[in-house]
């Protein structure tokens, strides 16, 4: 617990409610050091997984000329392996605000 002179209770500056219907999602490649760091995206909770991947994740990933789109991709959500349903939303796939998704393979 923090030691302070008075009551110490302040809200998070990145809390989900500030983003309305959207969430922040982090994505990184687990097997490559080409990208200096994981990325942050702002996406609607209701966005379909497949739209998220095609519209947001892939434009970043394919900026690496050695990224192979034809290979089978697999995913990890936070610490666990993850098989997303492509037609369900981010929220329905269990992705929460500021969760980190790892892309494996490619």
């Amino acid at each position: 617990m923090i030691k302070s002179l008075g009551t110490y209770d302040f809200p998070s500056k990145s809390r989900q409610e500030l983003y309305g219907d959207d969430i922040l999602v982090h994505v990184w490649r687990k097997d490559s050091m080409f990208f200096c760091a994981a990325a942050t995206f702002r996406a609607p909770k209701a966005m379909k997984w497949t739209d998220f991947v095609d519209g947001m994740v892939m434009p970043l990933m394919t900026s690496d000329p050695d990224f192979d789109r034809t290979k089978e991709l697999s995913w990890q959500l936070v610490d666990d392996s993850f098989v997303p349903d492509p037609d369900k939303s981010l929220e329905e796939n269990g992705i929460h605000h500021k969760n980190t998704i790892a892309l494996i393979g490619a």
């Binding site: 990184w28 970043l60 900026s63």
Partner: peptide, 8 residues
């Protein structure tokens, strides 16, 4: 190359 996005 410039990173086309924002970092975590």
């Amino acid at each position: 190359y410039f990173y086309p996005g924002l970092p975590q």
